[in-house]
Design a protein around this nucleic acid. Structure first.
Length: 210
DNA sequence: GCATAGATGAGCT
DNA sequence: GCTCATCTATGCG
């Protein structure tokens, strides 16, 4: 891929105002946009095809539910801030949404690889496109996103979100969120994804759409 | 192809 | 110690 592709993406970075809306709205709007990471090894990017919203109010699955800790304090910062943390030895990347002092965020769960695919293959040690970024832990490994990206600005980089191709309108399906235990808001319909994508992490559990 | 168990380590109580 | 916003290999068909 010519390096001009990376520059093209940078010119289409979404502004901080994109994130200054309710988490559900941002979660749906992020579908089809491009998640990008620039490293010394090269630029990797993928089209976002799966997200989950975590709400400031009434959501026991949200990390902010039990109050501020050293790990989750970034959720109270400005919309457009990256919240990266580890679970089960994997890094997960979120976009802080809403407003300052309103702890809500959108988890980016899956991408369709677009740019830097060979680099992603090396990092993942997998060949098939569907195995590179079809899960929240997989996509951070493929793009090289780690704890060093926590508190970064998604409207500046090196991790950023750029406007997608916007081509065909794809149907958005909704489901309950993945991996939450009982009593943690596991019944809330806050997961959004493109049902026609081969790179979505989990295809069962669909509530509507299709 | 799908369901299940085990690995694995940081954060929190 | 226990809890995870997970991934992979495996066992079965």
């Amino acid at each position: 891929m010519p390096k001009s592709d990376g520059e093209c993406l940078r010119r289409r970075i979404l502004p901080a105002s994109f994130y200054a809306r309710p988490a559900e709205a941002v979660a749906k709007s992020l579908l089809g946009q491009m998640l990008v990471k620039e490293t010394a090894e090269g630029v990797c990017a993928g089209r976002i095809v799966e997200t989950e919203a975590y709400l400031a109010c009434g959501d026991a699955g949200c990390h902010a539910w039990r109050g501020m800790t050293a790990r989750n304090s970034v959720m109270w910062e400005a919309p457009g801030t990256a919240y990266v943390y580890t679970v089960h030895t994997h890094c997960l990347v979120n976009a802080v949404t809403g407003a300052i002092n309103l702890p809500e965020a959108v988890l980016i769960r899956a991408l369709e690889p677009v740019l830097g695919i060979e680099l992603m293959r090396r990092r993942r040690k997998r060949e098939r496109l569907e195995d590179l970024t079809s899960g929240p832990g997989k996509l951070t490994q493929a793009l090289g996103i780690d704890l060093g990206d926590n508190r970064g600005r998604l409207d500046e980089g090196p991790v950023f979100v750029a406007q997608g191709d916007g081509g065909e309108a794809r149907a958005i399906a909704t489901s309950t969120r993945i991996g939450l235990s009982q009593g943690r808001g596991e019944d809330l319909p806050l997961r959004y994804y493109y049902a026609d994508s081969d790179c979505v992490s989990v295809k069962r559990k669909t509530i509507d759409g299709g």
